[in-house]
Lab assay of single mutants.
Amino acid sequence: HSHMSHTQVIELERKFSHQKYLSAPERAHLAKNLKLTETQVKIWFQNRRYKTKRKQLSSEL
């Protein structure tokens, strides 16, 4: 499990705020920019979407 830097997370968050789903080319581009693997980016987005979904569910209770 590799640790992401604060800067990388900020960039991922910024991208996520604009779009929740990335196409393969977008993911490849973002990964390259942030010096991450595409898998890391993919998993981060999956986890981030899951967290957002959970938060929405709990706020509706």
Rank of each mutant, 00 (worst) to 15 (best):
R14C: 14
S2C: 15
L57R: 07
L22I: 05
L34Q: 00
T52R: 10
S2L: 13
R48K: 13
H3I: 08
A31M: 02
R27S: 04
T37M: 03
H1W: 08
H6T: 07
K53N: 10
M4C: 13
K53Q: 08
L30H: 01
K53L: 08
R54I: 11
H1N: 08
Q46T: 05
T37I: 02
L30I: 07
T52Q: 14
Q19V: 06
L12Q: 01
K55Y: 05
H1S: 08
L12P: 02
S2N: 10
K15F: 14
T37G: 02
N33F: 12
R27A: 09
E11N: 03
N33D: 11
S59L: 09
H29K: 14
L12M: 03
Q40D: 05
E38M: 05
M4I: 10
R14G: 03
S5P: 02
A31F: 02
Q8F: 03
M4H: 03
T39R: 12
K20Y: 05
K35H: 09
N33A: 15
R27V: 14
A28E: 07
W44T: 00
L36R: 00
S17M: 13
S5L: 05
E13K: 06
R48A: 11
N47P: 00
E11Q: 11
K15Q: 10
R14I: 05
K15N: 06
L61E: 13
R27L: 14
H1G: 09
S2R: 12
K51H: 12
Y50K: 15
L34A: 02
F45Y: 03
L34H: 01
H3T: 07
L36M: 07
T52V: 12
R48C: 07
K15H: 12
S58L: 14
S2Y: 12
L57E: 12
T52N: 12
T39Q: 13
R48H: 06
A28K: 10
K32Q: 09
Y50V: 07
L30Y: 00
L36F: 01
H29F: 08
L57H: 08
N33V: 15
K32A: 11
L61A: 14
L36I: 04
R49D: 01
T52C: 15
S5Q: 04
V41Y: 01
M4E: 00
L22E: 00
W44A: 00
T39W: 14
P25A: 15
K51I: 11
K42W: 09
K51P: 06
E26A: 06
Q46F: 08
K32R: 10
W44Y: 03
A24K: 11
A31R: 01
T39H: 11
K55P: 12
Q19R: 10
Q19F: 06
Q40N: 02
L61W: 03
V9K: 08
N47E: 11
N47S: 07
Q56K: 12
L57Y: 06
K32E: 10
T37D: 04
T7R: 10
E13Y: 05
H3P: 09
I43S: 06
T37F: 03
Y50S: 14
I43G: 04
R14K: 12
Q19N: 09
K35L: 12
R48L: 05
N47K: 14
P25K: 14
Y21V: 03
R14A: 08
K15T: 11
I10E: 12
S17K: 12
